[in-house]
Design a protein around this nucleic acid. Structure first.
Length: 108
DNA sequence: GGTTTGACCCTAA
DNA sequence: ATTAGGGCCAAAC
């Protein structure tokens, strides 16, 4: 499997109503320091097949979309639709990782 | 091959 | 607590 395929597969496993981080996905894909590469990958999503990309936030629980075709408000909206509480603070959207964080290793 | 580009992350000041 | 700086990796040129 390519890096890209491993990441997509992991994202598809994130449970509804929970979130994980770019770095966590990278680590679970056996490349612990490739968090940035995960972001670069998601930036390009041509889809297609439904993938819960909105369940991926940064290590501090913040939505990391900026100036993109899909606005961060859309990610926030999707999360809230699943029961995740999203807080708007200083122009950015945040989720409480202590409540909603999920890691692939927990689910194996 | 080298260079550039980010939906990133950690540390130190 | 908040900010700056540097390191990292995979893709596309």
């Amino acid at each position: 499997m390519t890096f890209e395929e491993r990441i997509y597969k992991l994202i598809s496993q994130i449970p509804r109503g929970q979130v994980t981080s770019y770095g966590t996905l990278a680590a679970a894909a056996a490349t612990p320091r490739a968090a940035r590469a995960v972001g670069s990958l998601l930036r390009a999503l041509p889809w297609g097949p439904p993938l819960p990309w909105h369940r991926v936030v940064n290590a501090r629980g913040m939505i990391s979309i900026e100036n993109l075709a899909i606005p961060k408000t859309e990610q926030s909206r999707r999360l809230q639709a699943e029961g995740v509480r999203v807080e708007l603070k200083g122009g950015n959207y945040w989720v409480d990782l202590r409540k909603y964080y999920w890691s692939p290793v927990m689910s194996v």
